[in-house]
């Protein structure tokens, strides 16, 4: 088990290095000079040049890459060109919105998907199953921003149970902040829960037709006992994979939902950074998101090994 974890950790570090190289160079080849963008179009070439020098943009590529990585390791994410504040500050404001939102949505997705998937699988081809399959199909098809607007319309504007947007900050107390994140989390979770339910169902149906389920039934387990004790854990591997992918998506991909609910999240930060050629922000935030995604992938791998003893041998 230890060997397995060490091997996975090594691959995590290598992936991070590869990702940092790709991010750095891709951003370098994007046209558009940040210095001239910051100075405005009327700036004199001398002034732009001076700024370039100040930002270290004139150093050779590899040197700038090394400097960037070393700074990242020190926790120095650089200073935003446009906001003129350290990127670390920008990020730390927003990560406390995005991360809780992603976790909240993921928990909702899992909490909805597990029972729904199990129910559908255990009553295969029944009216319940058909209804669930139809509903999840709809859940996947409906865009989440549209669903978000419906939620706002019904629960915020009509019923006035929630506010229509904005985020009070965690200083205002845990529950008010959580309440503000509820509608966006629900809107984000719904399509994810639909996907996850379907994966859960089909994975469970696959395992239910395995030989060891027949063995379990021959031991005297009822259909339900065989499902809970033998099928469920074996069905988890594909489900864990999807959960890992969903978390990554929820961390970075919620720009539209952030817009709908006026939330200061990471997605909006990257979006602004890109439109304003604030490459320092983009580079650092993307790198952080990549880091989060890779760490989640690592955790999913470790979870696999917990579920399946065959993977613990360290040869995965």
């Amino acid at each position: 088990m230890l060997v397995f974890i060490l091997k996975r950790l090594l691959s995590l570090v290598l992936t991070l290095i590869a990702a940092s190289v790709v991010i750095f160079f891709v951003i370098e080849v994007i046209p558009g000079d940040p210095a001239s963008f910051m100075m405005g179009f009327e700036a004199s070439p001398e002034a732009v040049d001076a700024l370039r020098e100040q930002l270290g943009l004139n150093a050779p590529l590899w040197e700038r890459y090394i400097n960037w990585i070393m700074a990242l390791l020190r926790g120095d994410f650089g200073t935003s060109y446009t906001y003129k504040v350290p990127v670390a500050e920008l990020v730390s404001d927003r990560i406390w919105v995005s991360l809780p939102l992603a976790i909240y949505a993921l928990i909702l997705s899992v909490v909805i998907a597990f029972p729904v998937g199990v129910l559908a699988a255990s009553r295969r081809n029944s009216a319940t199953d058909v209804t669930i399959m139809g509903a999840t199909q709809l859940g996947i098809a409906v865009p989440n921003f549209w669903f978000a607007m419906i939620l706002v319309l019904l629960l915020a504007i009509k019923a006035r149970w929630f506010s229509a947007g904005g985020f009070p900050g965690w200083e205002e107390g845990f529950f008010p902040a959580l309440k503000a994140l509820t509608l966006p989390a629900v809107a984000l979770a719904l399509p994810q829960a639909s996907i996850l339910s379907r994966v859960m169902r089909s994975s469970l149906l696959d395992t239910l037709s395995e030989d060891y389920i027949r063995t379990a039934r021959a031991k005297g387990l009822s259909r339900r006992q065989a499902l809970w004790r033998h099928a469920l854990r074996n069905a988890l591997i594909p489900v864990l994979t999807i959960i890992g992918l969903q978390f990554s998506f929820l961390m970075a991909g919620s720009v539209i939902i952030e817009k709908v609910f006026f939330l200061p999240g990471m997605g909006s930060l990257v979006f602004l950074g890109i439109t304003q050629r604030d490459l320092i922000v983009v580079k650092s935030v993307v790198m952080m998101l990549v880091f989060a995604v890779i760490v989640v992938a690592f955790l999913v791998d470790v979870a696999y090994a917990f579920v399946d003893p065959r993977l613990r041998k360290g040869r995965a």
């Binding site: 060891y212 074996n234 579920v307 003893p309």
Partner: peptide, 8 residues
């Protein structure tokens, strides 16, 4: 080969 539950 497949008659036993691999995770137990």
């Amino acid at each position: 080969m497949t008659a036993l539950n691999p995770v137990k």
